[in-house]
Each structure stands twice: as C-alpha cells, then as structure tokens.
Amino acid sequence: MNAKLPRMNHLHLIVPVLFLPAQASSAALAGLRLPHWEQLLARSAHSILPPAALEARLSDVFGVKGLAPLRARADGLAVCEGYWLCADPVELQMQPSQVMLQPEVAGTEAEAQALCATLNAHFVQEGLRFFAPHPQRWYVQAQTPGEAVMTPLRAAAWRDVKALMPQGNDARRWWRLGNEIQMLLHQHPVNVARQQDGKPVINSLWLWGGGSASVPQPACDAVGGLDALTLRCAQASGVALPGDLHALLSSARERGLWVDAGLQDAWQRGDLFAHRTGLEQLENEIAAPVWQSLRKGRLNTLTLEVPTETALHRFELTRADCWKIWRRRRPLTVYPE
C-alpha cells in the first residue's frame, strides 16, 4: 500500500502585476495561452482591495512595521537600537522634464565603504550612521523614528521620482537630507573615477522601508520564490526555505508563502516582451503545479494576491472550488480595472 502523500494546508501566492493596465493588456497578451491561470482565477472568490505594494504585504506577512531592520539583520547588521531605513545606492538621471531613477548601481565593496565614510563624517551631528554590508544594499540608522511615507525602491525604479519623494510630517527633513547626500556624492572621488571609466555614478541613495527593530511574527512557516527581498526577510525571521515550489507543495507545512516579482520588474522597465515571456513561464512553473496540487488534494487552500498600481486583487480558492465547472475560464485581460 502506498504511503499517504504529505498535504500542505494553505499557500499564499503573491505575483505583482500579473495583470497589466487595460490599455496594455490586450496587445501584450494577444495569442498567449494561459489555461491554468485562467482556471485558478475563474474558480476563485475575487475581491478588489485598496492598492498595497509588495513591500507592504511582506511587512504584514512577516509581522513587522518596516522591512529595513529585517533586511539589515539578514545582511549581518545588529539592529537592536534606533530607527533603520534601507538607503540603496542609485543613479538619478537628470532629463529635461524628469528625474529618472536607475536602481542597483553595481559598485564595489571598497567604493561603498569610501562613500559611507564620507556620509558618516558629514552627518554625525544629525545622529545618522550609514552602513554598506553589501555594495548594493545600504542602510542608515537614525536615533529617533521618522514620520514619513517613502516609496519602495522597486516601485520607483526606472521612473520619474519627482512625484515619489517622502510624504508626511518629517518629509521636509528627509528632502533636505536627501539633497545633502546628493551634493556629497556628486563630486566624490569615487564618482569622479566611475564617470571617467564610463560607469553609472552613485549620485543618490533611495530611502525606504523604515522601521524600528522588532521580533518578527511571520504568518507562514515556509517561504520560497525568486524574489531576493522575500528570501532575506524569511532568513532573518527564521522561516524554512524549501528551495523550489515543488518542495514547498510536497511538504506538510501549515502555511507557505511563494513570491515572484519578475513580472513587476519587467513592467517597471517598460519591457512588455519580458512581461509576456515571464507570464508564459509562470503558467508552467507556478499556475500548473498549484492547480494540480489543489485538484489532487495535496493543497487544501490558496490565497493569490496580485498587487497592481491601482488595486490589490485577492483570489481565495479551496480544493472544492476546483470542481465548480460552471465558473468558466476568462482571459486575464478582463481583470484590470
């Protein structure tokens, strides 16, 4: 007699920008076959909630008020005191009517340390300390909590940032500090050398994810996906990392989380071909195995969340819902608002 296969109770799946805006959706998806996505969506209970960025959803899932301390802990920093923000190095490209943000400028460890040393010397009276445990992941520690709403780097990437500056009671302070940071970086020897070598300059830091250190309270016991931020949050929270979706679905975990932000990254770059290719890949690598796991009884329930720029789409599906054949499949083009 065959041994009983393990069953996962619940899978929380987050796929930002699974749906494109209506004006782009029809052309981008023309001729694309996505039967498993269509089945999952059609058989689910669909609700439309106010917009929430992926980073906000991750904060909720991991039970923290800001992702910066969690990511910093995963990068090896002691974050027991103070208020922490991600301060990631970027290049602001000045154009006639826009200021475009190029993310993830590839610097070296030595360059990062030299730039941080200059920032720390200048901002000592402000009570700020800068850290660069990774050349592309920097942090700033403040002595007091801030009251400003800041746009995550992912949402600002490749966009005009003039409308994405900090908002809230402390916004003016962070605008001033941001201007000072840019002035310090602009003529720094590191950037002079990079410019001479034809490399992108590190002329600003993008601040986001602010929060004070707290004990994570994750609403999941296993996490996977292709999103580096999600995996670092899981690592810092002590949550299991199964490695791939098959291993996650084959486990007997109570609540699993799987995140894939590749479609959002493609959309942010304006690359509709990459979005289309990625969607086709996710049809085979995510939608199909999840649908099959539900139908075969190896997964009890699914929550699929699709953050877009205008809404958070939530789809709730149980194993029993899979057999509601009167809920006919519809193309993904019907879901954008």
Rank of each mutant, 00 (worst) to 15 (best):
V290F: 02
S214I: 03
W206G: 04
L34Y: 01
V79T: 15
D265V: 14
N191G: 07
Q235R: 15
L54W: 02
Y139F: 15
P50V: 06
N120K: 08
A22S: 14
R232Y: 05
H313M: 02
Y335V: 03
L29I: 02
L13A: 08
V215P: 02
E316Y: 11
D265Q: 15
R137W: 10
T308V: 10
S47D: 14
P6I: 07
L304W: 10
V15C: 08
P16V: 06
L279H: 01
A42M: 05
C116Q: 10
A320S: 12
F131H: 13
A42F: 03
T108V: 04
M183I: 14
C322W: 09
D75W: 12
F131C: 06
K65V: 10
R253N: 13
A240E: 12
A72C: 07
V124K: 13
M8K: 06
P218E: 00
S97A: 13
Q196M: 13
E126P: 00
A219C: 08
H10R: 15
A142W: 06
L29K: 00
L18G: 04
G238F: 08
L229D: 13
W206L: 07
H188M: 00
A72E: 02
H36G: 00
A68N: 03
G225D: 01
G278L: 03
L263G: 00
S250V: 07
L185P: 03
E81N: 11
I48Y: 05
I286F: 08
L13M: 09
L272G: 01
Q141H: 12
N2R: 12
V290M: 00
K324F: 11
H46L: 15
F62L: 13
R253D: 10
F130I: 02
L231K: 07
G76E: 04
P96M: 04
L153Q: 13
Q141S: 11
A193H: 12
A213W: 12
P96F: 04
A234P: 06
A288I: 02
S26E: 15
L184Q: 00
W208S: 04
L58W: 11
E104I: 01
T118K: 12
C220W: 00
Q196R: 14
H188K: 01
N284K: 11
